[in-house]
């Protein structure tokens, strides 16, 4: 039965994807991509991938739409017309068709969903499942795999997020105080939702609650779906909500920019630092067992710290990117 729901949702997903590609109105495309993200989250959840679904939820619902609209305010509303010669069009169609057929052919060889004899369930997965409890002593296997067994991969992901943040800031965050602002731009920039009573009062109440929920997700990654990435996105959503309501300048008063920069770098540094500490204490890089006298306690401590590092970096990067867009949005 779950399969039927899944197939139906996937059909909707294909329709949305086609509509996004076809749409020349970029605003409509942004809204449709919101629906795409919601559908993805439901699909992940039906496949029992709650941690991934939560990431999709946190990023797709809270942050992505806001950032897309920020980008849209910088560009135009319509997609630019680009002329392709008929020959080029046929070539593109041919390449796409060939790739799609290859992928389809490859998928015929794939094991069925939930097939116990699939290769992935023969090799490392049983080992992870069998050793999470004795070695790390936490119930959520996903966090154990992500943080400890494959901690090196996750370190790489954090640095990808870090680099992406630096990239966006260096492209958009260039100060342009020398540029003369016209009245319209100044006015539009200072405009916030401050004079809208209902969103303002409701938002004020929600911001601390969303933040509390983010911290709950952060610190319960070992027991239930969640962890640093999800918590970081939700926490960033809380601050972005505040900035939307009160204006970008007040948002930057709440969390000053020096603090954000510290968070962006500090989180990644904390993750790497834990790894180095393991080396200095005589273990391998990111082998948390040496952090405490009891190996499993060391694993707990290591996971807690690296998840914190992930959360801090993700929060800092997302808020910084939002500010970079908002500061440019009225140009």
């Amino acid at each position: 039965m779950t399969l039927i729901f899944g197939v139906f949702l996937l059909i909707l997903l294909v329709i949305v994807a086609l509509a996004i590609v076809r749409s020349e109105d970029l605003f409509a495309a942004v809204m449709l991509s919101g629906i795409f993200s919601l559908l993805m989250a439901v699909n992940f959840f039906l496949l029992d991938a709650a941690d991934v679904a939560l990431t999709e939820a946190a990023v797709g619902a809270g942050v992505a739409t806001v950032l897309f609209l920020g980008a849209l305010a910088l560009t135009g509303k319509e997609e630019a017309r680009h002329t392709v010669s008929p020959g080029g069009r046929w070539l593109a169609l041919g390449v796409s068709f060939a790739t799609a057929s290859l992928l389809f052919y490859a998928s015929l060889e794939n094991p069925h969903i939930g097939d116990g004899s699939a290769p992935v369930h023969q090799h490392v997965a049983p080992w992870y499942l069998a050793n999470t409890l004795p070695l790390i002593d936490i119930p959520n296997v996903v966090t154990a795999v992500l943080g400890s067994f494959r901690g090196f991969d996750t370190l790489g992901e954090v640095f990808v997020v870090f680099t992406a943040g630096i990239g966006v800031m260096s492209i958009l965050g260039v100060r342009h105080s020398l540029v003369e602002l016209s009245g319209a731009e100044l006015d539009a920039r200072q405009r916030s939702l401050r004079h809208h009573l209902i969103p303002r009062i409701v938002g004020r109440g929600m911001v601390p609650l969303i933040m509390l929920f983010a911290l709950y997700v952060q610190f319960h990654g070992e027991y239930s779906p969640g962890g640093g990435f999800q918590a970081g996105a939700i926490a960033a959503a809380a601050i972005i909500l505040y900035s939307l309501l009160e204006g970008d300048d007040r948002g930057r008063e709440l969390l000053p920019e020096w603090l954000l920069r510290l968070m962006v770098a500090g989180g990644a540094l904390l993750y790497g630092g834990v790894g180095l500490a393991c080396v200095l204490l005589g273990g391998n890089f990111l082998d948390y067992s040496v952090l405490a006298t009891v190996p499993s306690a060391g694993q707990h401590l290591g996971l807690l710290l690296i998840e914190l590092g992930v959360g801090i970096t993700v929060t800092g990067v997302l808020i910084s990117v939002f500010h970079a867009f908002a500061r440019r949005a009225s140009r």
């Binding site: 989250a41 939820a57 619902a61 739409t65 609209l69 405009r191 939702l193 997700v217 959503a237 972005i240």
Partner: peptide, 16 residues
């Protein structure tokens, strides 16, 4: 998580 942060997108639309 969805119930808490889904409305932020609409507020961004209003501001846009």
């Amino acid at each position: 998580a969805y119930a808490a942060i889904n409305f932020i997108g609409v507020l961004a639309v209003l501001q846009f």
